[in-house]
């Protein structure tokens, strides 16, 4: 899923300072799962913003709503009944959600979260990067461990010389992806695979050829 973290509250306060009526919009998908921008976080942020304006002797009107999926125009359409009554929108969805709203309504939209990465939950409260959407998945030849996202240098033929005690040179709390790949290949009994050269990557499907798009004729 896409992971996100709430922005520092002062940054959000700065964005909405000129406005009195705010529509605060959460999303029921990824940001709910990573506890950054679901219904609960919408409520918490609304309270924090109210508290802040009270302290400053101002009033602020916040309408809270959490959409099923903010990156989907169909759900974003639901904002139509509120949008004319507000001065600005604060979105707690990932950057895709923020942009879907910005593309639909003529009202200023501000992000309340920093969109981080495509990751998986490692354990309660911990998410780690797992994929960079390179558009040409190599997991089938790297034992199910991604060198693009999980090697700090995205080396296709690692490990580099900096690996220390099996950890990445950037720090002891990051596994060396190539150590993991090697161990996995050994576990699967296919370590010979390691010596096959992974040729220089074609970065076009990864975004090197400009913004990416999928067109499914059967669905469009």
């Amino acid at each position: 899923m896409i992971t996100a973290e709430q922005k520092p509250i002062q940054e959000i306060i700065g964005y909405i300072a000129p406005y009195g009526k705010i529509l605060l919009v959460g999303c029921n998908e990824c940001v709910t799962v990573c506890a950054a921008g679901g219904r609960k976080e919408v409520g918490l942020l609304a309270s924090a913003l109210h508290l802040n304006s009270l302290k400053q002797g101002k009033t602020i009107d916040i309408k809270e709503i959490t959409l099923e999926r903010q990156c989907d125009p169909e759900y974003v359409e639901e904002l139509i009944s509120y949008i004319n009554d507000v001065d600005a929108v604060v979105s707690m969805a990932c950057g895709c959600g923020v942009q879907t709203i910005a593309g639909r309504y003529n009202t200023p939209v501000f992000p309340a979260v920093n969109t981080k990465f495509m990751g998986a939950s490692k354990s309660q409260g911990i998410w780690e990067e797992r994929c960079q959407g390179c558009g040409d998945c190599m997991l089938g030849i790297t034992g199910g461990i991604c060198p693009v996202a999980r090697c700090s240098k995205s080396l296709l033929n690692g490990p580099c010389g900096g690996t220390s005690a099996g950890q990445c040179e950037i720090g002891p709390d990051t596994d060396c992806a190539w150590r993991l790949i090697w161990e996995r290949l050994v576990e699967l009994g296919i370590q010979d695979r390691y010596e096959e050269l992974n040729e220089a990557k074609d970065w076009r499907p990864a975004g090197g050829a400009g913004p990416r798009r999928i067109i499914r004729e059967d669905l469009a």
């Binding site: 700090s152 240098k153 995205s154 080396l155 296709l156 033929n157 690692g158 580099c160 010389g161 900096g162 040179e169 950037i170 050269l197 040729e199 220089a200 990557k201 970065w203």
Partner: peptide, 28 residues
């Protein structure tokens, strides 16, 4: 060479390139 990660240097805010790795540089 791969090169040390920028994290360790005097421009830690830089974006590292790593378009091709050292093995593919040799081949190139």
């Amino acid at each position: 060479l791969s090169g040390d990660h920028p994290k360790f240097g005097d421009h830690p805010t830089a974006k590292a390139v790593y378009d091709v790795d050292s093995v593919n540089m040799i081949k190139m």
